[in-house]
Write a protein that binds this DNA or RNA. Sequence first.
DNA 1: CTGAAAGCGCTTACAG
DNA 2: CTGAAAGCGCTTACAG
Lengths: 350, 350
Amino acid sequence: MRSEDIAKLAGVSRSTVSRVINNYPNVPEATRAKVLRVIEQYQYEPNSFARALAGKRTDTIGLFAISMNEKENASRIYQNSYFAPIVDLVVDTANARGFYVLIHTVYSPEDFQKIKQAFLQKRIDGGILVGTQKDIELVRELVGQNAPLVLIDYDISEIMAERLNKSHLAVINSMDYEGTVEAIEYLIGLGHREIGIIKGRMNTFSGRERYTAFVNTLRKYGLPVREEFVLEGDFLKETAYREAQRLTAGGKLPTALFSSNDDMAIAAMEAFAEHGISVPEHLSLIGFDDVQLAAVISPKLTSVKLPIDDMAKAAVSKVIDLCSAEEPTFSTVSFPTRLVVRDSCRPPQA
Amino acid sequence: MRSEDIAKLAGVSRSTVSRVINNYPNVPEATRAKVLRVIEQYQYEPNSFARALAGKRTDTIGLFAISMNEKENASRIYQNSYFAPIVDLVVDTANARGFYVLIHTVYSPEDFQKIKQAFLQKRIDGGILVGTQKDIELVRELVGQNAPLVLIDYDISEIMAERLNKSHLAVINSMDYEGTVEAIEYLIGLGHREIGIIKGRMNTFSGRERYTAFVNTLRKYGLPVREEFVLEGDFLKETAYREAQRLTAGGKLPTALFSSNDDMAIAAMEAFAEHGISVPEHLSLIGFDDVQLAAVISPKLTSVKLPIDDMAKAAVSKVIDLCSAEEPTFSTVSFPTRLVVRDSCRPPQA
DNA sequence: CTGAAAGCGCTTACAG
DNA sequence: CTGAAAGCGCTTACAG
C-alpha cells in the first residue's frame, strides 16, 4: 500500500494524500475526511524511508552509551546503576513524544564510528551521548555534521574553549560539585577529620568534579588530604573492591570514606566486611548517585542523590527541540543533587 | 556527499560505486581500490534511507518490551530484573553483528500500534517481542506483514493452533516447568510438606508454566495445594508485598514458599521481616530468575536461574537469520534452567 | 484548493 | 566489466 494507491482509492492525487498525512492546512475538510477514511480502512502507514529521503525528519533519536573498557567484565549497561535508568527514561520520554530511539553502546574507540555513521547515514535526527570519554574531537566531528547533539555530563568550558557554542548542542549536568561539598561537610559536621575518597573516572566530568570538590572542601576546613586515603577508582565495583582491600592492608584507616559513586561504595563495604571492618561502627561511608540498592543493603547507604530523572528527560526534550530549531543554539542545564542521609555514617569513635 | 559525487571523483559511474559499497564480485581490484580510496577520503556513508528505499535492508531490528500496567509505579524496565538484562544483551549482540536496534516500550494496548507502525513504516527488518500480553491477535497481525518476528516467552501451542508456524517466526523460551519442578522437589527433599506459592502473571507463558509445574509437582508427591497458601502475583514487588502481608495476617503459614520470581520473593521477605518472620528460620523461600540481587541480599536467596543470556542472544541471532531467510520458517528453542542453592531454605522446624 | 512533475540518494536489471 | 535508465515511495515547489 503506497500513497499512490490511497490516492486512487480516494479519487485524489498523491499530493493531496501527502497534504492530509502531513496535516497541511490547505485541504478542505471534506477531502481530508475522505482521504483519512481510506487511510484507516487500509491501515496505511507512509514508508518512513521515503519520507525521510524526501526531506522529512526520521523521528528517531540516537542514544549512545559510552562505556569504555567495560565489555569484558560483568558490569555492563543494564547492571550499571547509572546507565540503566537513563536508558529507560530516555526511551520512555522519547516514545511518549512520538520518537523512536536507536540505541547503541560504545565499548571501544572503533565503536565511535558507529555514532558518526548513524548521523552520516541519516538514521537519526539527533543524538544523546552519555558515559565516559566524550572527547572533544569526537564532539567537534559530530557537531561538524550539524546534527543536534546532547551531551550528558560534560565540561562546558571545553566547549566554550573550542567555540562550539554556536552549534546545535546542549549539555545536561548535575551539580556534582555542590553535592560532594554537602556530603563532605556532613562528615565534617559529624566530627570526622580523617576523610578518604574513592575516586571516579577522571575522564568523566562528574568524576573530576567530585574529586575536586572533595579536595577543596577538606582544604577549606583545614583538613589534610592524605595520599594513602585517596583510592583510585573508575566507578566500577571491581577496582573499588581491590582498592578497599589495599586500604585495609595498609593498617591505617580514615574514619570516614567518601565514594564517588554507590556501586564502588557497596563494593568497598564488602571488602571491609571481609576484614572485619564494619560500617558505620569502624568507618563511615557515603556514596553518590543514590541508586536503588543504596536503600536496600544493610546498613542503608547514605548517598548524594543524582537527579537522573530530570537529566534524562531534559536530554530528550533538548534533542527534540534542537531538531526543529532553525538557528544553531547552545544551552546547558545543571540539576541539583541532594544528600540522602541513611545509616552508614556516624561520628568517629573516640 | 552522495554516491554520485564519489562516482565523479573516482571517475566511474554510480553503478560502480554501488557495486563497490555492496561488495559485489564483478568489479576489478583496481577499480575497487580507486573507489574505496575516494570513499575513505571523504568519509562517505551511503544514506541509509535511500538504500532501504531502493530495496536494501535497514539493518535495524526492533526490540519491543511489553509491560502492561506498569507505567505508573516505579518498577519499570530498568529496574525490572528481567527486562534490563535482555535489553542490554540484545543491544550488544545486535550491535556486534552490525545491526542497530530500535527500542520501544509498550505500556498500553494503544502502544501496540507502535509496533505495527514500525513494521509498516519499514523502519526495521524484524522485531523481538518480550514481556506480557503478546496476544495471538497481535502476533497474527504482525505475522501477516510477513516481517521476521521473534517472541520471547510464548506458548508455542497457540501458534500451532493458529497455523502460524509457516511464517517468519521464532519462539525463544526457558524451561520454566522443569526449573519449577526442580525447585519444588528440592523443598520436598528438605522435608517440606506445606508449600505455598506466589503466582506470576497468568497472561505470561512462564507465569502459567511455573504455576502449573508447582501444582503438578505437589500432586505428584501427594501434597495438598492449600488455597490459603496460593498468593496472587504479577511478577511485581508491590503485589507480592501486599500478599505476603495478607498471608502473615492469616495466622497460618506454610513452611516453605515458592515465589514465581525473585523480585516478588525479595518483597515478600521484607514483608515477613516486618512481622518478625525470618527466612529461613521460620519460613523457607525460593525464587526464580536468579537476578543479581539474589546473591547480595541477606539471607542470600536460593533461586532458579533463568538462562537470560542465552535467550537474548538466541533472539538476536534468530531475527537476523529470519531477515535473510528466503522461505518462511518457524523455529523454537527452550533453554534449560538451573537451581542455584543459597541460604534461604532449610528443613522445616520440628 | 489541487495535480503533474521533479527530486531525495540509492540499487538493480538491462544492454553492451 | 560497466554505464544509462528506471524505480523505490515519498514531499514540495510550481502552475493553474
